[in-house]
Amino acid sequence: MSSTQASDSKRSKEDRTTLRPEEIFWRDHQPWLEQKGYMLRPRYRPGWVASWAGKDAKYWDYEDSKVLKAGHVIDATRISDGQMVMLKRISHDEHPYEKEISLYFSAEPFASHPRNHCVPIYDVLDIPEDEEHFILVLPFLREYDDPRIKSIGEAVEFFRQVFEGLQFMHECCVAHRDCMNLNIMMDPKPMFPRMYHPRSDRKTLDFSGNATYYSRTARPTKYFFIDFGLSRKYDPRDMPPVEIPIHGGDKTVPEFFDSSEPVNPFPTDIYYIGNLIREDFLQKTTGVEFMTPLVEDMVQDDPSARPTIDEVIQRFEQIRKSLNWWKLRSRLVENDEARGDRVARTVHHFFRTLAHVVYFRNPIPTPRC
């Protein structure tokens, strides 16, 4: 590609005054979605014109310049109560079990079960004149590690909830089969009580400033498994199952290397979670080295040598009980921190921790169910 072509391509990507192809579906269905009780942002309403058009201004300073992160998912506001939700467009053919498994965990007696960490489904919308797709209405969630997990206790609580959620799924004979880091998210409402713009950290549609938030220790949050497109539910009489490998987002699964032999998907779930902790914590931060022996067992090449989720939780509980309050209050240090940032964060952490102690906040911030 020539330099001129590259420059034209860059300008095209930065041009937010017209909708991208993946955005047009939502614009065209906005009136129907509004009838169903869900309002899209101004950008996705018929007749939208960029608010910065014709002005000597930077487009990124305007709310309606924010495009979708993925074309099949869009944020919306539930008209009945003003709550932010997510709409996910799904193909019946590509993900034939996603609706079934999602609704299974969203119905009682599972919906209110305290160990259920599967994202709940608020609504299922059948798209007019489109028998191939449907839309799931989900809570508005946020990446599990944004803002950063700042203390050892906060990391321990994340591990606990993830292990607990996977155990609950496995007890229900459901294998997630893609439980990598992007498919574990958190409820932002406790930490962001006034919420934020869905595609930035600015305040909502007024874009008047940055959204404020609290730490996990001050406002404990709950973590959720999402995206059941590759998941399977099995008959208890057929356990343990064997399945042809399905490659999820984590491409490092040892049993999938150069092999298409059917395998038990439950040990693969163990690998996914172990590798998440290895890559996102043990390799990137200092402070949770006590997880190393357990994680090394979870990511063994031989699936049959990995612990079950019940064994993982039993070992994790012993680890958790061995951690004193000072360790749990300690800062989770990112390995790539610049020296100046490390000093500033350490000082800030000291005063933040002092406030937590004064207010008797638990160093392992478990949310109320």
Rank of each mutant, 00 (worst) to 15 (best):
Y38K: 07
M169W: 02
A155K: 04
K150G: 10
R160T: 15
C172W: 00
G54E: 04
I121R: 02
P46Q: 05
S106L: 00
F134E: 04
E154L: 05
Y104L: 14
T77E: 13
K66G: 10
E171F: 05
I101G: 02
K69H: 11
L136C: 03
Y38Q: 02
L136H: 10
P139Q: 11
A53D: 13
R115C: 15
G153S: 06
G54N: 12
R89N: 09
H117A: 01
A53G: 05
D64L: 05
G47Q: 02
R45W: 07
E34N: 15
D64R: 06
D61L: 13
V137M: 05
E94V: 11
D130N: 08
M169E: 13
Y122M: 01
H170R: 05
V67T: 14
E157K: 08
V85E: 04
H95R: 13
A155L: 12
A107Q: 14
K55N: 08
V67F: 15
G82H: 07
S80Q: 15
F110K: 11
Q35K: 12
Q83V: 14
P42E: 08
L125D: 09
S112H: 03
D130A: 06
P114F: 00
Y122W: 08
I127K: 10
I152F: 04
K69N: 11
L125H: 03
I121W: 01
F105K: 00
I101L: 08
A155S: 07
D93T: 10
R41F: 15
E164W: 00
A111C: 09
E100C: 05
I127E: 02
E63K: 12
E94M: 12
G47W: 02
Q167Y: 10
K88V: 07
